[in-house]
Amino acid sequence: MTKEDQNKERDKKTGTLRDLASLFWGFFKLGLLTIGGGYAMIPQMQQVAVDDHHWLTEEEVVDCIAVSQSLPGIIAINMATYIGRRLYGLKGAITATVGVVLPSFIIISLAVLVLGAIGDNPWIAGAFVGVKAAVCGLILLSAIRLGKQILRTPFQWVLMLGALAAVGFFGINAVWTILAGVILGILYSQIRGSGKHGGDETEQASGKEAD
């Protein structure tokens, strides 16, 4: 009931220019301040959407994260579209999405211009080597962290190793590995008996990951 009341409360905000500007600025800041991709953005998204602006309740944010994680694409875009639409419909969705994308668009454009102007500089080249080496470690840790949550059955290990070998060694297009995962996942859960709770463990695991 309280949720319905809140929805009514929110419907009063019809999405005036002022509301949309506030939504835009909120997501622009999120896009500007989060470094390191979608997962780093989730806690800040909670802070902005729940505590600062009261756009969503705590419960709705958890739903939003769960849905975003189970859809393809950039998590930040999924969340911006979801929140924007819940608040002000299509124009809200567009406002929030543009807001969250714009900072990286501007910054990368500037960075390319500046770096292009500098040209070959051993200090800059060295900095790139340093970050690239560190990124190898970062990606490894990220894979291990997710793997601990998700890889619980031999079937899942086989799929993970299969995707790694297909893309990393045989150079097969990554899109095919995703499609193979879809088909094998459906077959596996159907065979395991009416697909009962096939995805539950991992569903919970990915929810935990978001916390």
Partner: peptide, 25 residues
């Protein structure tokens, strides 16, 4: 159930893809 089943397959594949990214870098 079909969507749930698909995700039991997609999730491990994404970990394989993350590891493959290391090879490129």
């Amino acid at each position: 159930p079909l969507v749930e089943g698909a995700f039991t397959g997609i999730r491990p594949v994404t970990i394989g893809l993350i590891l493959a990214a290391i090879l490129y870098v």
